[in-house]
């Protein structure tokens, strides 16, 4: 049983890691804790429903549709809601993202109705069995794609000029402006990327389960994942995601499914009390 639990935990954790990476990116670039990230996951799931199930687009086009639409939505939100609040109190900014998630949820439920939708994509749904462990192909694919995205982003940050500018902006907005960086544009791109990563997570989660606004709760797990890993640390976000996936699976298998979230949030509280800069963050940065 344990290997099975570990496998599902890591596979799910990879998806959380992906969503958490988007979350951490937005936070690092713009200092905004995006409580709507969970809803962005749902948006991704319903973009998949729109393209695949309603418009009957071929899968490749569905993917492109999701990425482009999610990027546009993220950028538009930055331009319309986040930018006007530059320099305002933390509560205002948090509340705008919370209100945004309320609005997005309402819109989705109005447009698509309250019932969950099944996703039809050609993604593999079979299972193969290795030494008694049932390995779902979809889980494998989700984990694989997540790791691919994570790898690509690592390269992007390390080796491209724009990636460098994003890291610099995360380090300080005024310093970035002084150095000639178009901070507003960098922020918009960060929001677009954060939204795209959540949407890809949403695509997989909708395929693994169903597309519904219930996925928000799963998407919101990115929050504890990021904080546990270290709010300022990109690798921390990913490891945090894996950790949350593992904890969830272990708790629901060995304790009870209802208790899964509690272990995560208790760990979150402990980390906040003992190591607010996160397991992988740097101490100096944890102080606010």
């Amino acid at each position: 049983m344990l290997p099975q639990v570990l496998f599902s935990g890591l596979a799910l954790g990879s998806i959380y890691g992906l969503v958490a990476l988007g979350f951490a990116l937005v936070f690092k670039a713009t200092d905004v804790l995006n409580f709507a990230q969970g809803m962005f996951v749902v948006v991704g799931a319903f973009l998949a429903v729109t393209a695949g199930t309603q418009l009957h687009l071929p899968f490749a086009l569905t993917l492109m549709f999701i990425v482009v639409a999610a990027a546009l939505i993220g950028a538009a939100i930055q331009a319309l809601l986040i930018r006007p609040l530059t320099g305002r109190s933390m509560l205002s900014i948090i509340m705008v993202t919370i209100a945004l998630s309320i609005v997005l949820r309402a819109l989705i439920e109005i447009i698509f109705g309250p019932q969950p939708r099944a996703l039809t994509t050609p993604m593999p749904t079979g299972v193969f069995i290795v030494e008694g462990v049932r390995i779902s192909q979809l889980h494998m694919l989700a984990a694989g794609v997540s790791w691919l995205c994570l790898g690509l982003f690592a390269l992007f940050f390390r080796f491209t000029t724009f990636g460098l500018q994003m890291r610099a902006t995360a380090n300080g907005h005024e310093a970035a402006l002084v150095s000639g960086i178009n901070v507003d544009f960098v922020n918009r791109v960060a929001w677009a990327i954060g939204s795209v990563l959540a949407a890809i997570g949403g695509l997989f989660l909708a395929q693994l389960q169903l597309a519904s606004t219930e996925l928000e709760g799963i998407g919101l797990l990115a929050l504890p994942a990021v904080v546990i890993g270290g709010l300022q640390s990109i690798p921390g976000a990913i490891i945090g995601g894996l950790l949350v996936g593992l904890i969830e699976q272990l708790a629901s298998s060995y304790v009870s499914p209802r208790s899964a979230d509690i272990f995560v949030y208790t760990l979150l509280l402990l980390v906040l009390m003992v190591r607010p800069w996160g397991l992988f963050g740097q101490r100096e940065l944890g102080r606010v």
Binding site: T161, L164, Q165, R167, A168, N171, G172, E174, A175, A176, V178, S179, G180, I181
Partner: peptide, 25 residues
Amino acid sequence: AQVPEGRLIFKQLSVEENLQVGAAF
């Protein structure tokens, strides 16, 4: 260009990366 009050260098980036940011355009 300016050298701002308090310098405002990118503390977490390396020296070379700081300079590269300044040269990005």
